[in-house]
C-alpha cells in the first residue's frame, strides 16, 4: 500500500496554486490535509501525477467572524473549528472521524472531496454556504446548493481552488447527528436540521447531501416532520441495508436533530 510516484509542487499563495493547476493540467491534484486523498493514493485508487501542496498557503487558514457571516479559510482544520465556539459548526465536528483526523483534515478539503455523508457538505447545504473559489480568471462564489453535482463530483473547475466557506453568523439553532455501527465511521445516515429555517439536510440517502425541507408545515411535532422527511425520500435496497431501515434511520435522526437543535 504505497502510492504511485508523483511530482510534488508547493504553492505559497492561492494564485500560485491556481497557476500550478493551470500549468500541470488534469493530472494535477490539490493536497491539503490529505486525510482522504492520501489513503486513496496508498490504495492506488487515486494516482495523480502531480500534487500541488497548499498546506503552506497561510492566507487560507483561520476563521473570521464579522457581522452576519463566519468566513472559514479552506485550510482551517476540523479541530480548529471544533474549538472555535461556532455553535452547530463546532458541535458537528465531533462526528468528523477522530481527533488525529480532525487535526489535519481541512474544511476546504472536505468540501472538495464531496462525500455525500461528510459533515461539512451537509452543513454547507443546510445553510446554503457560499463556497469561495479562486481560478485563473479570479475569485468567484458558488452556492452550496449548486456545488455538489454527484458522488465525489462538484462544480469546482479543474484549475480552481476552494479558498474559503462563508456561513451565516450567528449560526442559527441547528444540529447535526449521525448513525454508524461504530464511532467515527462514515455515517449510514446523517441528518442536519436548521430549526429556524425548518430545513433538513440528509447524508447517506443519495449521491449528494439532500435537502428535504418545505415538505411539511412548521408547527407540527418534530416526530411528524421527521416522518414527513423520511417519507419524501426515494430509497432503494442495498447490500446490508434495506430502504426500509434507511428510512427508519432518517426518521429517528431527523427527530433527534430537531430535538438537539431545540434544546441547544
Amino acid at each position: 500500500m504505497k502510492p504511485a510516484a508523483f511530482e510534488y509542487h508547493r504553492a505559497r499563495t492561492p494564485a500560485g496554486a491556481v497557476g500550478l493547476l493551470t500549468e500541470l493540467g488534469d493530472d494535477a491534484k490539490i493536497i491539503a490535509g490529505g486525510q482522504s486523498l492520501v489513503a486513496m493514493m496508498n490504495f492506488r485508487l487515486a494516482r495523480p501525477e502531480h500534487l500541488v501542496d497548499i498546506t503552506h498557503v497561510d492566507s487560507l487558514r483561520g476563521i473570521a467572524v464579522s457581522e452576519g457571516e463566519i468566513r472559514i479559510g479552506a485550510l482551517t482544520t476540523h479541530r480548529e473549528v471544533e474549538k472555535a465556539g461556532l455553535g452547530v459548526l463546532s458541535a458537528a465536528m465531533r462526528w468528523v472521524g477522530h481527533l488525529p483526523i480532525r487535526t489535519r483534515g481541512t474544511v476546504g478539503g472536505s468540501i472538495a472531496h464531496a462525500d455525500a455523508t461528510a459533515e461539512w457538505c451537509l452543513l454547507a447545504v443546510l445553510f446554503d454556504a457560499r463556497i469561495v473559489v479562486e481560478g485563473p480568471s479570479g475569485v468567484r462564489e458558488i452556492r452550496a446548493s449548486e456545488f455538489f453535482l454527484g458522488p465525489f463530483t462538484t462544480a469546482l473547475g479543474p484549475d480552481e481552488l476552494i479558498t474559503a466557506l462563508v456561513f451565516p453568523s450567528p449560526p442559527p439553532r441547528a444540529a447535526l447527528t449521525e448513525y454508524a455501527d461504530r464511532r467515527g465511521d462514515f455515517a449510514l445516515v446523517a441528518a442536519a436540521v436548521d430549526l429556524d429555517a425548518d430545513r433538513v439536510v440528509l447524508g447517506g440517502v443519495g449521491a449528494v447531501p439532500t435537502l428535504v425541507s418545505g415538505k411539511w408545515c412548521s408547527g407540527t411535532t418534530y416526530r411528524a416532520r421527521a416522518a414527513a422527511a423520511a417519507g419524501s425520500l426515494e430509497l432503494r435496497d442495498e447490500p446490508g441495508i434495506s430502504a426500509h431501515y434507511r428510512r427508519g434511520l432518517v426518521r429517528t435522526l431527523v427527530e433527534r436533530a430537531y430535538e438537539e437543535a431545540a434544546n441547544g
Binding site: 490504495f43 455501527d181 461504530r182 464511532r183 467515527g184 465511521d185 462514515f186 447490500p239
Partner: peptide, 28 residues
C-alpha cells in the same frame, strides 16, 4: 457485533480496508 468478511457472488472480498472491516474501538 462488528466484524465480518463477506464475499460477493464472484468471490471478491468485500472488506479490503478498515472502513469495511469494523474493528471495535474504545467507544464500543
Amino acid at each position: 457485533l462488528f466484524e465480518v468478511v463477506r464475499y460477493d457472488d464472484a468471490g471478491q472480498p468485500l472488506a479490503p480496508s478498515f472502513m469495511e472491516y469494523k474493528v471495535p474501538t474504545a467507544a464500543e
